[in-house]
Design a protein around this nucleic acid. Structure first.
Lengths: 106, 106
DNA sequence: TTTATATGCAACAAAATGGTTGCGTATGAA
DNA sequence: TTCATACGCAACCATTTTGTTGCATATAAA
């Protein structure tokens, strides 16, 4: 479904969300409170961002006692790579066309 | 600068914008009016999307007579690839760790 | 010249976004 | 048990986003 794609593109659109993801890739796993200390916004602000990241499958959260630990899920990025890969064909075509053009100049 | 990155991530966040880009990759170059016929929103709506795409360097527009022709610029996608490439390292690490783990099982 | 087309600009409106604060609850520590 | 911590939920608010319509202008066509 394209809904999955929409969600991840929405998720990475916000710079704070990209930074949260970045932090979690580097330093997993962190509780929500621990994570929040690294940002200027409130814990609830971070929680809201986490919700979107979680819906986009970019972050997994699991409860442990009274804390909830977050970890980044790299696999979700495949959706973006898939989107990009479609355009590689056209990119290559243009490079090829440029190559042909350069060949003609010799 | 990160402003460039912000702009392209914003640009691709909207599904209509992604579709406009897609159409322009397939069928460049189209005038704004021609392009608009392919979407349910108004011409001005499309123009607004084009403005963001242009600022993100994903689309180039040049006037020809009373028309303005739009074409997609694939190069802008490199910014997204750059962002993704950082995480490839971690991805590989995890695969490697998985590999090591599987080795231990034999 | 007159008319039709392609466009930009501005004002507007509804909805989404990104953030806040306050409060209630569950869990861990003293 | 009592207190502090980690969290979710809901209400609220300002700004941005995504769309609209109306109108003015420049260019092409009749």
């Amino acid at each position: 479904m394209s809904e999955k794609r929409n969600k991840i593109f929405k998720a990475i659109a916000d710079p704070t969300r990209r930074e949260i993801f970045h932090v979690l890739v580097i330093d997993s796993a962190l509780s929500i409170s621990q994570l929040s200390t690294q940002f200027d916004i409130s814990r609830q602000g971070v929680t809201k961002h986490l919700k979107l990241l979680e819906e986009a499958k970019m972050v997994n959260i699991q409860a442990k006692g009274r804390e909830r630990y977050c970890e980044a899920s790299l696999d979700a990025l495949q959706e973006i790579k898939n989107w990009l890969s479609f355009y590689d064909v056209f990119w290559d075509d243009k490079l090829k066309a440029l190559g042909d053009h350069l060949d003609q100049m010799t």
